[in-house]
Design a protein around this nucleic acid. Structure first.
Length: 354
DNA sequence: AATTCGGGGGC
DNA sequence: GCCCCAGAATT
């Protein structure tokens, strides 16, 4: 049984109020803005999020503005941030709030959890930070901190383990300041109670940390699973027609990089001549070919091994669905994955040389 | 319960 | 290289 609940709360909250970083979303309690920040921060570091957050709220300052946004422009604002379904779900959730809740983000876990893209963590984070509702918000930081403070050695890779930590937070949470308590746990995990070499000597709750006294904090939390990544070879084609337009295609509406645009790419398999496949699939005659640098792109669960080419096309006919011949200026307005931005950058350099 | 979703930074 | 990051949706 944990005997230090009250001391822990006080030490954590006071430390947070004293030492917290000055972050953009800490200047507001607007539930819409907190919501945006929490979605961006899913699996994404604070330093990465900051410029995206500033830009996003500039473009979509209110829930109504986001609800009214068109998807291509919306995706463009998320370009480079990754996990693109987050922003589609965010817009869907915001639209629900505008249409069904009079524009007011719901204040109970039950209701807010029905919104698209709002899972157990985001629900608790928005409720506690925007509204001061005492609800758990368990992320990776919280599991690491509490696994050490309470010496919990369950495998955090298992879904059921998160429930253990959610129960723990509900027993520990400071009802007088749920916002500072939840944020304090996360801030502590980010700044002090780090995955490797935690700074225990600087920790405000060291006196109340079971692992510090009785164990080895750096050995917690226990996490088993590791991901296996498949490698897929692709040829990527920047195809120019005689007017200098470029062939682009939009990815499928579900799955990896859904609805993002790309230079057409063909999986490399035995006995497949990829540039012939291109000419046939996109209806043009092949009139020239140059090599670009190969590029490797690592996703969470797979690796694209890409070879880039510039093709010259003649006798161009109507392209298939979800593809188009576009000028360079038009291409720049499309949402592109990072690997495609890298190819675009290469292409510009090659083009300068000619 | 396991897999699918991006991309970057720290070590 | 590997690990992790203010996770959620889908299967």
């Amino acid at each position: 049984m944990y005997r230090y609940t009250k001391q822990f709360q006080k030490a954590l909250v006071e430390w947070f109020n004293r030492e917290k970083r000055d972050l953009p979303w800490r200047h507001t309690t607007d539930p819409y803005k907190i919501w945006v920040s929490e979605v961006m921060l899913q699996q994404t570091r604070v330093d990465t999020v900051i410029p995206y957050y500033e830009n996003f709220l500039e473009k979509f300052p209110t829930a109504q503005a986001l609800a009214d946004a068109n998807e291509e422009f919306l995706l463009k604002q998320w370009e480079g941030l990754g996990y693109y379904s987050r922003v589609r779900n965010l817009q869907a959730g915001v639209r629900e709030v505008v249409e069904n809740y009079g524009g007011v983000v719901p204040k109970t876990r039950e209701e807010i959890s029905t919104l698209k893209g709002v899972g157990p963590y985001t629900a608790g984070a928005v409720l506690s930070i925007a509204y001061g509702v005492p609800e758990h918000a368990v992320d990776g930081n919280v599991m690491r901190v509490l696994s050490r403070v309470l010496m919990i050695d369950e495998d955090i890779a298992l879904p059921k383990t998160k429930k253990t930590f959610e129960r723990a937070v509900m027993e520990l949470i400071d009802y007088d300041n749920p916002s500072a308590f939840n944020q304090g746990l996360m801030e502590l995990g980010a700044m002090v109670c780090t995955p490797t070499s935690p700074s225990c000597l600087l920790c405000p709750v060291r006196d109340y940390c079971t692992a510090f006294h009785e164990g080895e904090p750096e050995k917690l939390p226990v996490k088993t699973k590791k991901v296996k990544t498949k490698k897929i070879p692709y040829d990527v084609f920047i195809v120019e027609d005689e007017q200098g337009r470029i062939l682009m295609e939009q990815r499928p509406e579900t799955g990896l990089l859904a609805n993002m645009w790309q230079f057409p790419m063909v999986e490399v398999k035995k006995d497949v001549v990829t540039d012939s496949v291109m000419a046939e699939m996109y209806h043009f005659e092949l009139a020239g070919k140059d090599h670009l640098m190969p590029l490797k792109h690592v996703f969470s669960h797979l690796v694209w091994q890409m070879d880039g080419y510039i093709l010259r096309a003649t006798d161009v006919e109507e392209p298939p669905e979800r593809s188009a011949w576009l000028t360079l200026d038009e291409v720049e307005k499309l949402p592109l994955s990072v690997s495609m931005q890298k190819f675009l950058a290469q292409y510009r350099i090659e083009r300068q040389k000619l």
